[in-house]
């Protein structure tokens, strides 16, 4: 039996090589580059060890960037939880046919490039856009709202992009709920609210926490949403890295920023898991 297992193990070896080569490899390269010396020219750097790239991040301009990114990621995650949990919960309680329709509606946007969908939001949010026209027609506002190219627009875009992951994560764990447990809790004296908090929420927490990670981690890096819907007002770490790679032509600094971002995000997840004590996160980790 043992030998047979090993044989099957060999079959997946190519996958390990692939992972090493294309995931771990670039990471090592990135870390290495982050300690290299930038020499100005187009994408040029020399292999001279330096910590300058890291000390540069301490500059208030760049620190501000990190703070803004974290703030946005937190705000996005909280709002996605508040919208996504009830959505996923009630979706799991629909009839089988209702579930299918909902699932379809959630998947449809993924058939279009996310970039194109963001331009859709510009059409909706701009001064003479769909939203303002609609609100004006029903008489809720006199002057058009200036949502586009502001913080709320970025937040809307982030929520829009990440909400499906939360919904699906919550849905899958609510779907697995044994509702007789809720009946048991009511039977033992729990009000509907108490039954929800002590049983339903506790048992669907893995799904919710998975959704939080699936929302928080990408929201740290989704720079193009801030670029497109936020104009140039909101500069996130993601945008900064992209900027340093292209226009700024400073690869070592971009690499250092990326390393710090990765470390901070990992730290967040680590702390998060320490606080929540959830071992089994619906499929991930």
């Amino acid at each position: 039996m043992k030998n047979k297992k090993n044989l099957w193990g060999l079959c997946v070896m190519p996958l390990y090589f692939f992972t090493l080569l294309f995931i771990l490899g670039p990471m090592i390269y990135m870390v290495t580059v982050s300690f290299a010396k930038n020499n100005g020219g187009a994408y040029g750097f020399t292999w001279n060890f330096t910590l300058n790239n890291y000390t540069k991040i301490g500059d208030p301009i760049y620190l501000q960037c990190f703070i803004q990114s974290f703030k946005l990621a937190f705000a996005t995650t909280i709002l996605v939880v508040l919208i996504g949990y009830p959505f996923g919960y009630f979706m799991a309680k629909l009839s089988p046919k209702g579930k299918k329709i909902m699932m379809f509606l959630i998947m449809v946007p993924f058939w279009t490039s996310s970039l194109i969908r963001l331009y859709g939001w510009i059409i909706i949010l701009q001064v003479k856009g769909v939203l303002n026209t609609a609100l004006k027609t029903i008489g809720l506002i006199d002057k058009p709202l200036k949502i586009l190219y502001s913080y709320p627009a970025v937040l809307i875009g982030m929520i829009y992009a990440l909400l499906p992951f939360m919904i699906l994560a919550v849905y899958s764990s609510v779907e697995k709920m044994d509702w007789s447990l809720v009946e048991a809790s009511r039977d033992l004296g729990a009000s509907p609210a108490a039954a929800f908090v002590t049983v339903t929420l506790k048992l669907t927490l893995p799904g919710l926490l998975t959704g939080v990670i699936l929302t928080f981690v990408p929201s740290m890096g989704l720079f193009f949403i801030a670029d497109i819907l936020g104009g140039n007002k909101i500069v996130l770490v993601g945008s900064l890295i992209q900027d340093q790679l292209t226009r700024g032509s400073n690869w070592p600094f971009a690499a250092a920023l990326a390393v710090i971002l990765t470390i901070l995000t990992s730290l967040m997840i680590y702390l998060y898991r320490r606080i929540t004590h959830v071992k089994d996160l619906e499929g991930i980790f």
């Binding site: 044994d178 007789s180 447990l181 048991a184 809790s185 009511r186 039977d187 729990a190 049983v199």
Partner: peptide, 27 residues
């Protein structure tokens, strides 16, 4: 149901899987 002085032993027991025996009974 929570306002009736009646309790049920369910067919599949419906024990809370995230609580130990003590917490189940003390619920």
């Amino acid at each position: 149901p929570e306002k009736r002085n009646v309790n049920t032993v369910f067919q599949n027991y419906a024990l809370f899987p995230h609580m130990n025996v003590y917490n189940n009974i003390a619920y």
